[in-house]
Design a binder for these strands. Structure first.
Length: 496
RNA sequence: GACCGCUUAGCUCAGCCGGUAGAGCAACUGACUUUUAAUCAGUAGGCCGUGGGUUCAAAUCCCACAGCGGUCACCA
């Protein structure tokens, strides 16, 4: 079998690895004790003049990203940044210089020496000792263009992360955003909880589920599409006045730049609060995050500048629809009238669509594409919101809002429906829709109704998609950029 | 799910009016030795995504399939 180009490259590195072993060194030693990170050194010596030598001894470790002048200059990359290692025959012992023969770009090495700044201004370590910490067997992508193949970046995220600082920064910012959310919630005294991911009844959202099977119980389970019904059970139980959960949700739907089958959301529930309070909460939380990450409430996304300053626009869905369509759907009493009005606007609606579904369809078509700046869209039709409490002033509506930024829904919240009899009716309507072929209609959760019968206090609840928020804050155009390992179709012949 | 596009060396890309497969980086051999995408000389490295078809001849034209991307549909 003829060796491919890649096989030859691997063979060369294997040869160096073997030689290193024969020289008595371990290509994969157990530990190392660097005392400085690259960026800390740049900070500490930022005032060191060009051409200055010091006697300050430091020890660093990192991956070799570049070798210049036959290894005289090694660029080491650690988790903080890069630092140059300088190996010169005048100052580096011959035995150490000999080790350069075993090195390749991509190897992880440790280096000790003294700090200096070259005459041309590069902070460097004049090496007196170098040590292999992990021999790399595969060539890294080209130093200048890096790894740009989109598929390779997601399939081999580790290579993407080695090569692309932007990818590292985005995922680090994601982590920081989640920490900020957690801090915010904990600071208000909310209790973080965990509820089942394996659900025997799908509930809390309209979505198509993943199904899995438990062998010992011989039972199918749905991967949760929302933790909502469990979290409200905890409120019923009085576990805490404020509970929240940050976790993965799973929806068996299409994949797009804004949709990953598994995504991360937060949901929170707060006793004795209503949806107006939730609007304040969402607005304040998002501002806290944007301000922490950017130091400003006006930040760019794509071609726009998004202004997160208060107050965010708060307007009812019906009046937004009326502004764009010139139709006051509130005056249309039946689904039939609504469907006709939508068709007159040139908007396709399902012939079985209810009044509320028509309003929602018209909203999606005419209003949503215009909601660039943060907007709380309020007071949705009742029949598309089976878990929300009826509006205190209008029986056709519920007390619900969705927050839109950059035309994306990033939050959804309501005054929670806590009348058990009404909840049962709403569930029954969903079941009827489901039986009529609506795959995304919700299922009857009898136990949840029982929980309501024990008494759910007046409660405000909200949920927010964290991935999309991270996209907004990191100016990422694809949800995959903010997920470490986005869902990809497996390759039939995985070759690397 | 529908439509459009992409797939060539480890990486980034040329080549696509059909006529023996190219460059830069990485690698290897050597030179040089305070570089910054180091430089210079040389060497090696390819099932041109997979499978069919047209043709004397296919990386190139046609069809199917796969993966990926974009747009739309569904959704957060």
């Amino acid at each position: 079998m003829p060796a491919t180009g890649q096989a030859e490259l691997l063979k060369v590195r294997q040869g160096k690895c073997d030689s290193l072993r024969q020289s008595g060194a371990d290509p994969y030693p157990y530990k190392y004790a660097p005392d400085h990170k690259a960026t800390a050194l740049h900070e500490k010596y930022k005032d060191l003049e060009n051409g200055t030598e010091t006697t300050d001894q430091v020890c660093v470790a990192g991956r070799i990203m570049a070798m210049r002048n036959n290894g005289m200059f090694l660029d080491l990359q650690d988790s903080s940044g890069k630092i140059q290692l300088f190996c010169h025959k005048d100052s580096t012992p011959a035995g150490e210089l000999a080790k350069l023969d075993y090195l390749d770009i991509g190897d992880i090495i440790g280096g000790e020496g003294t700090i200096r700044r070259t005459p041309r201004g590069e902070l460097s370590i004049r090496a007196v000792k170098i040590q292999m910490l992990s021999k790399s067997m595969r060539p890294l992508p080209e130093k200048y263009h890096g790894l740009s193949d989109i598929e390779a970046r997601y399939r081999q995220r580790y290579v993407d992360l080695i090569m692309n600082e932007e990818s590292r920064n985005t995922l680090r910012t994601r982590s920081r955003i989640i920490a900020l959310i957690r801090n915010y919630m904990n600071d208000m005294g909310a209790l973080e909880v965990e509820t089942p991911i394996l659900n025997s009844i799908m509930g809390g959202a309209s979505a198509k589920p993943f199904v899995t099977h438990h062998n010992a119980l011989d039972t199918d389970f749905y991967l949760r599409v929302s933790p909502e019904l469990y979290l409200k059970r905890l409120i019923v139980g009085g576990l805490a006045d404020d509970v929240y959960e940050i976790g993965r949700l799973f929806r068996n739907e299409g994949i797009s730049p804004k949709h990953n089958p598994e995504f991360t959301a937060i949901e929170g529930y707060h006793v004795y609060k209503d949806y107006h309070d939730m609007m304040d909460l969402v607005e304040n939380l998002v501002q806290t995050i944007v301000l922490d990450i950017h130091g400003s409430l006006k930040i760019p996304y794509g071609d726009y500048e998004i202004d997160y300053s208060s107050p965010w626009k708060r307007q009812s869905m019906l009046s937004l629809v009326e502004e764009e369509s010139k139709i006051d759907f509130m005056t249309l009493k039946t689904a039939d009238e609504a469907r006709t009005a939508a068709r007159d606007l040139g908007i396709f609606v399902d012939p079985k669509a209810s009044w509320g579904q028509v309003v929602e369809t018209v909203f999606d078509a005419l209003v949503e594409p215009k909601l660039i700046q943060p907007t709380h869209v309020m007071d949705h039709p009742l029949d598309i919101s089976p878990l929300a409490k009826v509006h205190r002033e209008n029986p056709r509506l519920v007390e619900r809002f969705e927050t839109f930024i950059n035309c994306w829904e990033i939050a959804n919240a309501f005054s929670e429906l806590n009348d058990p009899a009404v909840q049962r009716e709403r569930f029954n309507a969903q079941v009827a829709a489901r039986n009529a072929g609506d795959e995304e209609a919700q299922m009857l959760d009898e136990d949840y109704v029982v929980a309501l019968e024990y008494g759910l206090p007046p409660t405000g609840g909200w949920g927010m998609g964290i991935d999309r928020l991270v996209m907004l804050v990191t100016n990422s155009s694809n949800i995959r950029d903010v997920i470490c390992f986005p869902t990809l179709k497996p390759k039939k012949n995985p070759d690397q």
